[in-house]
Design a protein around this nucleic acid. Structure first.
Length: 487
RNA sequence: GACCCAUUAGUGUAAGUGGUUAACACAUCGGCCUUUCAAGCCGAAGAGUACGGGUUCAAGUCCCGUAUGGGUCACCA
């Protein structure tokens, strides 16, 4: 096999979608697995759909999930430019060569005529298809720039009989009847090439060996193969990736919540987790291990593991993967990642002691599905509880006889502690409970909600230890005051 | 409508060229651990492979049909 060269070639028409990045990731993993090259090309041939800033967002989405561009837009390389709108001369050159050889022709059919033609064909229950009206009119080609004045396009003189078969690496041979195919437009009246044309020309000149793209291109691939044949070029290998559907097996849409990469970032999904999840969307490794870092993904990725049925986007699974990654992170790193989420929830982290925050996150990380959950779940390490969880407060405080007495004696005993650590705090609580003749759990639960405002969380002694004597005492005193108000 | 692609427990995926009682993960349920909630560990239940034919000693695996879902038939990509 030649040295692998693959490309990710999105059009800058909107925000980067999970499907886009999944395609990019598969290409990237394949390239890296074979020590090949990952090329990033921008297909901006539709000027009406161009969205300002889209290219930058695409680039940063790739960067965020850890895909490095070896060659292409923003990275450079010897097959550039990698922006199709800057390669117009090339397309013009190839198109005129094709016209000269009778493989393409200028067509000045009006849009109205084409619409009418399609309407009639539809009425007659025929396949909508260009009828070759201009195929033999030999309308002169005066260059791309003249096309709009001529109100004309360039069409491919496609083979009209026989069959075309191409090999899809995953599905095997796929055959189409040439009569089904059309004299597709190669260059539009605005002088820009169509996807079908530019994609073939660029893949050829950029020496692309494998085209890995969404399976919506299965039906248009025979047209591309015809173009390669007409130009006497060798076609690359084709690999069509399954579409991504939602759990209702419908096309993933905005209504499903999040389809754009940026939204996952906002949700507190780690890039490593999203990448891992995306890799599993339409691909499965030979072994059963599902948590894989980039290195492992590259090592294990192979075309034979790609699925051909639709891949279903399972958000629960993504969150599970995310929690696995969060739990495996060192507290310090987790804190850095969570800090923006803490800030936007109104928690001031500017003068937090780093080792302290680190420990807090170490305690919490096995119960943190996403970074977005951090403010709510670790908040009490950064500020006293503003309110107490209603049900828990009733059950663990209001319904417990003499609870104020219990807490008060616990406070007194804690105050007299010389050495404050997890063990001394624990034995202090257990001794207090014993002298009060209550089960330790009564005191534990009451202390937990008093100090954190919550009924769930890490082990109480870890919490008390980290919070420190001063905080613990003042929080419990505050809780006692609140009890007094309510009794 | 025509053409092309797909269809395995609730969900996602595995089962190289057809060959033991269809495997793994998520979710679910139970147990252990424990002050709670998670995590972790152990275990359970759950499909006979969309449906109907056929080929074969033997079929998720090959062939045909039907159903369902999806894609393409643009001067979009």
């Amino acid at each position: 096999m030649d040295r692998v060269r693959v490309r990710f070639a999105p059009s800058p028409t909107g925000l980067p979608h999970v499907g886009n990045i999944r395609t990019a990731l598969f290409n990237y993993l394949f390239a890296r697995h074979h020590q090949g090259t990952f090329v990033f090309r921008i297909e901006d041939t539709d000027r009406s759909r161009f969205v300002e800033g889209a290219i930058e967002k695409l680039t940063s989405a790739l960067e965020w999930v850890g895909i490095e561009i070896d060659e292409g837009y923003s990275a450079g390389g010897k097959f550039g430019p990698y922006l199709q709108s800057r390669r117009l001369d090339l397309y013009e050159d190839i198109a005129s060569q094709m016209i000269a050889k009778g493989k393409a022709y200028v067509c000045n059919c009006s849009v109205q005529r084409l619409e009418q033609l399609r309407a009639e064909q539809k009425k007659a229950k025929l396949n909508p298809k260009y009828d070759g009206h201009c195929r033999h009119k030999n309308i002169p080609f005066k260059g791309l720039e003249q096309l709009s004045q001529q109100n004309a396009v360039i069409r491919f003189a496609a083979p009209q009989e026989g069959q075309i078969t191409y090999n899809d690496k995953l599905r095997g041979e796929i055959t189409f009847d040439n009569r089904q195919l059309d004299d597709i437009v190669l260059v539009k009246a605005d002088g820009f090439p169509t996807y079908n044309f530019a994609n073939v020309v660029d893949d050829h000149f950029m020496n692309i060996t494998h085209v890995m793209r969404g399976d919506e291109f299965i039906s248009s691939t025979p047209k591309h193969v015809h173009l390669y044949n007409a130009l006497d070029w060798t076609a690359p290998e084709f690999i069509h990736l399954p579409i991504i559907l939602n759990q209702q097996k419908k096309r993933l849409s905005k209504r499903d919540g999040s389809v754009y990469i940026g939204q996952y970032r906002e949700m507190g999904i780690l890039p490593s987790a999203l990448r891992n999840f995306l890799a599993l969307l339409g691909w499965s490794p030979k072994q059963n291990e599902e948590i894989m870092d980039m290195k492992q993904l590259i090592e294990r990725f192979s075309i034979s593991g790609i699925t051909i049925h639709p891949a279903i986007f399972d958000l629960d699974k993504l969150i599970w993967i995310n929690s696995q990654y969060i739990a495996s992170l060192p507290g310090e790193e987790l804190f850095n990642l969570a800090e923006p989420f803490m800030r936007s929830a109104g928690i001031d982290t500017s003068d937090i002691d780093l080792p302290y925050a680190e420990q807090a996150f170490d305690l919490l990380k096995s119960r943190l599905p996403t970074l977005q959950d951090a403010p709510e779940r670790v908040g009490y390490f950064f500020h006293p509880p503003e309110q107490y969880e209603q049900e828990g407060w009733e059950k663990r405080i209001l319904k417990v006889d003499h609870v104020q007495t219990y807490l008060s004696s616990f406070i007194e005993n804690l105050k007299s502690l010389d050495c404050w650590n997890r063990d001394t705090v624990e034995s202090c609580l257990r001794e207090t409970a014993e002298s009060l003749k209550v089960k330790p759990s009564i005191l534990i639960h009451a202390a937990r909600i008093s100090v954190t405002g919550m009924t769930t969380g890490p082990g109480l002694f870890d919490i008390l230890n980290l919070l420190g004597k001063e905080q613990v005492v003042s929080r419990m005193e505050k809780a006692i005051k609140k009890i007094a108000e309510q009794v």
